[in-house]
Structure formats: structure tokens, C-alpha cells
Design a protein around this nucleic acid. Sequence first.
DNA 1: GTGAATCATCTTTTT
DNA 2: GATGATTCAC
Length: 728
Amino acid sequence: MELMDFAPNFSIDQLTQSQKAAVLHRDGPLLILAGPGSGKTRVITSRIAQLIKDGVSPYNICAITFTNKAAEEMRQRTFDMGVTSGLQVSTFHSLCVRILRQYAQMANLEPNFSIYSDAEQKKCVKDAIADCNVASSNFMPSRVLNAISKFKNDLESVEDVAKRADGFYLEILAKIYKRYQEILLANNALDFDDLLVRTAYLLRDRPEVRSELSRRFQYLMVDEYQDTNHTQYQIAKGLSIEHGNICVTGDPDQSIYRWRGADIANILAFEKDYPNAKVVKLEENFRSTPEILSVADKLIANNSKRKEKRLIATCESGNKVETNVYSDEQEESLAVARKIKSLISSGANLNEIAVLYRVNSMSRALEEAFVNEQIPYSIVRGVEFYSRKEIRDMIAYLKLIANPSDNVALERIINTPARGIGKTSLGRVADYAKARKISMYEAVTSVAFIDTISKAAQSKIAKFGHMIHKFTKLLDEPSCGIADLMETVYLESGMSDSLKPNERGEDTARANVDELISSAAKYDKETESQQTSLFDYLQSIALYSDTDAYDANSPTVSLMTLHAAKGLEFENAFIVGLEEGLLPHERSKENPEELEEERRLFFVGITRAKRNLNISYAKYRSMRGMLNRTIPSKFLYEIGMSPQNAYANSYGSQDSFTSKPKKTSDYVPKPKSTALYRAGDSVRHSKFGLGKVKEYLDLGEKSVVTVRFDSGQTKALLLKYAKLDKIG
DNA sequence: GTGAATCATCTTTTT
DNA sequence: GATGATTCAC
């Protein structure tokens, strides 16, 4: 019995009535409907502390968060309350890895399985499509992968899909799905979704495992329940079915992962699902000003599928929500940058400011403006680092060392850096392995027996095999940390010699690997006391997420997508690009449910702001190198901001139009007097061919020519970039 | 078998 | 406009 694990630094006195109700409801199912800024995290941590105070061992409590970052924060908070050990706090994925490792045998798994993320999944799905002999033009790997992911999110096995397949498309899809799973099995690998799926099956098919885990996790808490998919739902149910102590928290209005398989019905139907559930609503908002909340409220009222819930403001009144319109994204970015500068000069800290946008590519214009205006910023995109070529190569070495069955890793590095092992030889190794049902690494170690391969190639391949074998040996030495191993691999594999500076003389690739090694050294140090393995390290990278890179204390302005902003809050928030096709996004327009999700996404964005919120859009925006005239987002109308008078205007403030005389005009270049083109002019474009000018907007440097081409399409082109010749 | 160069394709959000 | 596949010269 651990006696030190009560929570002496915790008191319930400061909580509101409804918060207390949520904390004190101890046994049985509990649904906490928590609006934005309602102190949800505080309630969950208080609940944990209260349970422990009541005599429950931390060892018997399991909290599931949405991101690693949130888990880390919760650990810190409960630690501050005096909870010192034993608590299980993690994401669904991390928890599943843990369970699958512990019960590997029962789950029919080798415990050193690889975890495949997008690039590796794509490779496997491509191979699967090729093996099924289907015209890959009809079955694009990304589409197929999406479909497979959907099956897995809905907990549909290969057999389930094959059984319900009624048409050609689904039949082929089932075939590819089957082959894809076989490939993963051969590689001793699981993809992201498999981590969940395999755990769900384990809980379903092995009552003894389910019982053991139920006894271990007697109190289960799931945060962000509105964004769980069906498989996660089944896992939560499986873990709690024997004791019924399941507490879920979430907000249907903040569900933004439908596209990833999240099923909002999980939270909407919780009471039906658990008939004796207690429901607590947390409707008070302790984060934002009434001005911000009223905008959020107006917006979300347009959604039909929701649970009625109020937003009760408790903060003092503050500034009006600002809406601005700019001529293009450069001007928008510059204006945001200057507004940030003025916020800073009036005392704001850099880390209290965030700029939010719908798609990652929108960070580009903002970055440029921030560099020009010399504003320190950081882009919250953690996974980007790990998707770099040189980093992926290094990781592939480690993956192969940890899991010799990982053919995808082997294929990636057998000739990286170039060792003279080409496609032909590799293909023969693969054939040999396939025929004998062994891994490619095993085939490599016995390459001398593969007589289809030339002696010269054999010796190169054997040399590679010996090198990997040597690395594997290193792993057995207890003194060898991940960073040491990495460094050895880096030097002895030839990776270090092969990385060259780019055209501009920047040695970024090398710097990246250095960063990887030092981050591994940090990992070694942090996990010194525990006995961690290469597997644990690889797992932590595989499940690394964008928001994990967010550091609330770093003195920089944060740039991130609206999705990444989930769960965060900022004194000052800017939301840019309120345009049709962007927010709501083009791809969500046909489906009313997806439109509602876009609205929720904007709702999430608005409610991140504590005191100042600034919303903007640009009249022209270039997407994939093409300048387009935009249409203001319908969401602007819904929040009562008519874009016509939104120009440098403040919402709800009658006089601000005159008090702020066209601040934006500072950045509009003066029109030139001589028009270069006139409507009706014939022109030739290097790519689109012949056409006639429909409209010419004379804006000097930023002049826009709208041309109707003979091909039928009409394009608005930025004169500066358009390769346009006037004819006649 | 290698590396440069060109072509084609896709382009929302991410654990 | 970036990434991946293909092609071509060596």
C-alpha cells in the first residue's frame, strides 16, 4: 500500500457549485459538458485529487487526454496537488501501446513492433495496391489509405468489410485492405489506427485481460470525449464495463475531428448509453470577455446538431471584437504584424499572442511579415521536423535495429547513403524473402545463398548486413544510450559523409541530425531512472504531435492552425483568412454536417481569445501560385459583421469607422496613372494560351488582370507574376 | 548503378 | 509550388 499518495495540497473550496458537483460525484458514469474556458482541466485534476483523498490509490486511476502535451500538463498539475506516483495519464494511443506491449502474446504481437506513420503507411498501401493487380489510377494510395483508416476508426475488420462489400469498388477495397494488413503483419508493424483497433479487439476477445485492466483502472476519465471515434469508444467501454466508473468530459460544440473518424454521437448519446449517468454542465466561462463570448454564441447558434448550452460570461467587459478586411494576404499579414507590435508596445508579452489560420500553407505570408517587422514567432508544427528526409533516414536505421522484420525501414536505408545496391538487386532480395517467408533482413544476412544476385552485389549487401548486425549488438550494452547509438549509426553508416550543404551553402541537413541527436540525448537524460528501450524512444517519436511542440512560456508569437489551437488560450488572438473556401473550407461545402464542423472550428478559434480578438480576411489571396478574388466567409455575416462596412471597423462600435481612418490604406500601393491593359485586349499566357482581358485592376505593383482564356477558364492573375504578352 | 533534370500530380485539418 | 516518379546521360 502506498500511503504517501494522498493529495494534501488540494482544496475544493474555490470551485463553483457545478464544478464541485462534477468533482464530488464519485462512482458510476458521469458526463461533464464543459463549455470553453469553463475550468474543465481544473475540474478533472481536482477530481483525481479528490478520489485520492477519498482513499483511492493513484495506481487505480486512468486519465486519457487528447494530446501528449495535455497529458504532461495534467501530470504536472496533479503533482502540484500532491499526487506523486502511479497515476496513468496518457493519450489513447500511448495507453494502447502500453497495453499491447504488456499483453503482446495475447494480442498475437511481437512486443518490438514498429509503429507506421503516414509515409510508411503510404508505402505499404502502394505495395498492397500493386499486389492486388488493380489499375492504381482508380485507387489512389491516399484515398485508399483514408478508406482503410475509416474502416479501422469504425472498428471494421477485413472480414467485416468483405462481407458487406456489395459493389466493385468496395470489393477491391476489401482486397487491398486485406493485403495491406498482411504486409503490416509481415513487417511486424502496426499503423496508428491499429494501435487502437488491436487494443479494442484484445479487450473484446480476452475477458481475462479486460478484467485485469478493469481492476487496475478502477476510475477511468476521458477528456475531449466529443472527438473520440468508435474504436476509442469501445476501448473506453471495455476498460470500464466491469465497474462503470467512467467519467467523460467534452463539448459537442468543439468537436472538430469528424474527418478523422470522430463520432460526435459518442458524447451526444452518452446518457442513452449509460442510463444511470449523471450529467453536469459547466456553462460559466472564466476565460473570455463578454464581447468575445457574444460573438461565439451568435456563431454557434447557427448549428442545428447540438446540445443546448449557454455561455455565461464572468469576465469583465473589454474591447470590441475587431474585424478587418485587407487587399491581399501580404497586407493582411503586415497589418497583423503591426497590430502585434502595438500590443507589445502597450505591454503585452509575446507568448500571450497567437495567430490562427485554417491551413498550414497560410503561415507563409505571416512569416514573411514577421521577419520583416522583426517579431519573434514560432510555428507550432512538431511533426514537420520528423518528416525531413535525413531525419526519416536516421529513424529508419533505428527502426530496423529495433525490429529486424521492418522491411519498409530496410528498403529505405539499404542504399541510403548510396552503396551501389540498386533496384534490381533489392528486388531479388525481396523475392527471395517473399518466397521463403522470411524478412528482408534475414535474406540480407544469407545473401551468399541468393544465386540470382551477382557476386559484386552480394558483397555490398553482406557488408550492409554486417553493419546493421554490429549496431544491433550495441543495443545489448546497457551503457549505450539512444544518443550514443544514433551517433554511431550516423558516422558509421556513411550518413554523416553523405549530407551536403544545399545550393545556398546552408548545412541544414547536418544541423537537423545534430538536433535529433541532442534531443535523443535529452531523452536519455530524462528517462535515466526508468529502464527505457529503443522501442520506447521510437514510440514517443511516432506518437509525437503538433501541439507537443507548443511551449506556452517561450517568448514568441505562436502561429498555428485552428486545429492545433484546441485546448489552448491566449490573451490576444488573431484569426485570419475568413473567406469562403478557406473557412469554411472548400472541401466541406457540399455536406451540411461538415459545414457545421467548420463552424465549430471557427467557434474553437474565437473562444481561444481571452481579451482581444481580431478577425480578418483578404479580398485577394494567392493559392498554389494563383491569385484569386475571394468571397467573405458566411460566418462573418452570421456573427453580424457585414463585410461591406467591416473595412477597418470594430464590431458593435458605431464610431470606430471614423475614429480609425483606414489604417489599412497605409499598405495599399498607389495606383499608377497609366493602365497597362484594358478590357477587351487580346493576350497570350505562357501556360493558358490565348485569351481576352475581362477586367484590369490597376494597383501598381499588385495590379490584377482578369482574363477569359479561349480554353473557357477565367483567371485572375497578378500582373507581376503572370507571364502575359499583349497581342496587337 | 548514379545523379541531374524534367514531368506530373496533388494541394485541409492530425493522433 | 512542393514532392514524387520517370527519364536520360554518364
